[in-house]
Design a protein around this nucleic acid. Structure first.
Lengths: 357, 357
DNA sequence: GCCTGTTCTTAAAGCGCTTCAAGAACTGCA
DNA sequence: TGCAGTTCTTGAAGCGCTTTAAGAACAGGC
């Protein structure tokens, strides 16, 4: 049976052909739109025979509800928003787990990207404007103030970073302890000149830097912090700086940074770990590969993802309002990028330094 | 000024506190909702003074429009949907570029993830149900039939894969030629026993396999296809199989697969490219790193992303209906994972074979 | 056959916004 | 002052769905 009204013209861009509405299905099945709505969402009430007929008609005509309209009318979106950086492997792994868990719980995920050009604030606002019922933040580098404004009352779960904002739960690993594990490991290998290539000025980099510094002091060593960043690019750029200092190990902000650093150094002839030990943070999927083989911290990603979703759903369904915080214990993953301190000053390091000059 | 109606109770989950509506702003500014709407979207008409007042009030009260309602009312979403796999670095790079381009064009991006557990069909349906005006497919492994059904009349641009579906444009690289470049390169290095670790049963893997076979035949060589897949995991699993055959080079389905393969082999003591040359496909950001240093194909990712967005927007704004197709020329990127054919049979390969046996 | 109770179904009122015809409030000019 | 012509503003009608109060239909019990 044809839709009851004539097809609209193509005046509005992006409109395409007219889609079926509830009314169309109602007409075709000879019932009211309200009934169709109830049937299609399996609500109790409709008579079994009617339900079967309506379902059949909807199926046959290929009806699909307009999500926008449903959301507006029901005042619920069943949407869990996630901010993430598309290329970031760490985020990729988290999102994969979040998705699965979210679907198990009967919600949909709306992904909002954070990139160099699309910043976090507007990313969160998109999610909030789209009426996500709760937001999971994978990337947060915002201040408490900014977050409060952007969230505008929507509850959230922040993954990976401690944060003291009302209605925002926190799931993370203890970065201070984690950095301690790395430094301890290197010290255990005999290193005493250990630099830190940091992650920049955001919150998380700052905490990790602090963790590094505390651990160094604990061992009676002098910290040396070199500016870095959170991508391979940043790591690579820190190489020259590192060479200028007389160190035997580098603790970096994260795996990406470590990978970039190692890459540049190796291209300059430095051998890892023979000349220099390097450690990362995150245990990205790639970090276990032969060519990378990075000693790093496993922050219990998947557990973090699952807990984040559970808490997010709890926020929605149980209207919990006390803040929840959980620290997963960091686990040291020892691989081939860290080794005993070199016996003598490395000639290759000196050569690389000269080359990079 | 307070909202004009009492705050709703917390009966509906996920509802939180009542948000400001257009009406609230209208009341506060002493004008009608329609006017507020026009002002906030910068439409011509409203008097400058009024506009300033309304803007000020909206700002002060922190009003943010309900996107859902706007979309329903305007019958436009200005939404460009993208299907992607979150952890995939190749997709990450594409998405980053797509985002930027899309914003420049004044649209928003809705990302819908495709993972092992969340399959492409439902991913596309989510985008269509959310009334994206056009969809960009990064991952398509669906049949023509399935795609037609899932898209339900919404135009799309398919990136990376030729596809003959009405209203679906295609932006890609010529995989056949690309595979030819790789094989030619290896043959030029003296290799004659070249295996292909394929990408599985989907369309794209099939084309690349074909490209490989054609190139081998062109050189009068016998193709050898080994089952693989599209992740590091698959590549690693193919290692044992590869060792059983007497080859000096492996052309893999993509960079991820190559990386997994190399990793496993190197852990078994095989040296690359001394014992075996390996090539990838995609030129992922990581593939240029020292530890990986993979010879591969650069498929002009960023150009593909930009063209995809341009065409998508064109579909919406100009209601173009002829299908458009563009092949970007593949570029061979020679790096350290491919080298001259070994002089004699490799002892390390034999040892690895024994170890893996 | 009338009344009460069930079981289904419908009509109507929104959800918060956009849009647009129609009206109000100004202009300027004769 | 009067009238056409502008410029602003408003009111009302939706967008496609959900939800609920009220009505229809049918059963059973006296």
């Amino acid at each position: 049976m044809a839709p009851s009204e004539p097809v609209r013209g193509g005046a509005v861009p992006g409109q395409g052909r007219r889609r079926l509405t509830l009314q169309d299905i109602a007409d075709a099945a000879g019932v009211s739109p309200g009934l169709v709505s109830m049937v299609l969402r399996g609500r109790p009430g409709p008579n079994a025979d009617t339900a079967a007929r309506v379902t059949e008609v909807a199926q046959r005509l290929g009806y699909r509800a307009n999500r926008t309209a449903s959301q507006l009318a029901s005042r619920r979106t069943r949407l869990l928003g996630v901010t993430m950086t598309p290329g970031n492997p760490y985020h990729g792994e988290l999102v994969e787990e979040i998705l699965q868990r979210t679907h198990e719980r009967g919600y949909e995920v709306l992904l909002s990207p954070v990139t160099r050009t699309h910043e976090e604030l507007s990313s969160i606002q998109t999610l909030v404007d789209s009426r996500c019922e709760v937001v999971v933040l994978l990337n947060s580098t915002l201040t408490t103030q900014q977050l409060t404004t952007a969230l505008d009352g929507v509850p959230a779960v922040c993954v990976g970073r401690p944060l003291d904002v009302p209605d925002v739960d926190v799931v993370r690993t203890d970065d201070i302890t984690a950095m301690g594990l790395l430094v301890d490991h290197l010290v255990g290998l005999g290193h005493t000149s250990i630099a830190h290539v940091d992650g920049g000025g955001d919150y998380l980099p700052e905490v990790r830097r602090l963790g590094y510094e505390e651990a160094m002091h604990r061992h009676g060593l002098t910290p040396l912090v070199l500016p870095g960043g959170e991508t391979e690019q940043h790591g690579a750029e820190a190489a020259a700086d590192l060479l200028r200092h007389d160190v035997t190990a580098a603790v970096t902000y994260n795996d990406l940074c470590a990978v970039g650093l190692m890459d540049r150094l190796q291209k300059l002839g430095v051998r890892i770990p023979d000349d220099l030990s390097v450690t990362g943070f995150d245990d990205d999927r790639l970090s276990g590969l032969h060519g990378i083989d990075l000693t790093t911290i496993d922050p219990s990603k998947l557990e973090q993802a699952r807990l984040a979703v559970d808490w997010a759903v709890q926020r929605i369904e149980e209207e919990r309002s006390e803040r929840a915080v959980h620290d997963f214990p960091p686990r040291l993953v020892v691989r081939g990028s860290s080794g005993p301190v070199p016996q003598r000053r490395s000639r290759r390091m000196a050569a690389a330094r000269a080359a990079e000059g």
